[in-house]
Nucleic acid binder design. Structure first.
Lengths: 133, 133
DNA sequence: CTGCATGCAAATAGTTTGCATGACG
DNA sequence: CGTCATGCAAACTATTTGCATGCAG
């Protein structure tokens, strides 16, 4: 991530480095506010604007995946920035990746079926997880 | 729709009837603002609040499907209120249903694979439609 | 030392809420 | 005629923007 930022000409500030670290470590798909809280722990004078600006950059560089989540705020995945399916529990709000073997095939199949040149396929499943049932 | 509303005890006001009409006729998955504009044509003194309140009711009664659409505002499908996949063109912003034959099978398969009791599966594909290529 | 990044505050946009008036049943 | 719905305005929330100051390169 650092390399990519530098390469494209962005400065490596402490704020950005910290956000990169957070995004590359967390597996829980944090939203901007969660990221801001984590960032503030280490840099108390930071602002939400910095988080939003940095996420925008990372998103543009495809270093982070933005995930729509019901009517809640967006979540971000900095570990696997390629579009992939997610599953979320409506009770405990657990939010995790979903390994769907047929996913890649599906994409090609869809292109053939629709004639579209597909840029992204977003699949979000919501339900009640085994523990909450 | 009317029947369902009455049944559950909601009053059939001109505003609601007009919104129901709009939602049952439009195939373009309008957002709240589009619905409000269409409503205002027939009832000029109406307000956005009424649209939001009515959509909330219809959504709760499963008479309308709410669709997440990238970072744009939600869209609503009053014709087929059951969750189903959508495909959208990032150039002309066409937004349409997608007939995906394997969809129902996929749901059962997912329940078996994940152990979740699935409430909804939202699939949104974005790309460039044949006309825009 | 030059320009981009930060952080604050203000602005914006979408949606929700409170409440007085009005209309459905 | 009682109750619920409406419509306005204000509140609210999340995000974006403008701008003066500060720091990376």
């Amino acid at each position: 991530m650092c390399h990519k930022l530098k390469e494209v000409g962005y400065k490596l500030t402490p704020q950005r480095l910290t956000i990169l670290k957070i995004m590359s470590e967390r597996t829980d798909h944090p939203n901007p506010d969660t990221i801001y809280s984590a960032l503030k722990m280490q840099l108390p004078t930071t602002s939400p604007a910095t988080v939003y600006k940095t996420l925008a950059i990372l998103k543009k560089l495809n270093e982070v995946l933005e995930i729509q989540y019901s009517n809640e705020r967006n979540r971000y995945d900095g570990i696997n920035p390629l579009p992939h399916p997610h599953i979320s529990c409506i009770k405990c709000h657990n939010f995790s990746d979903l390994n769907l073997m047929a996913y890649e095939n599906l994409l090609e199949k869809m292109e053939r079926q629709t004639g579209y040149k597909i840029h992204s396929m977003n699949l979000l499943i919501e339900g009640v997880c085994p523990d909450c049932q």
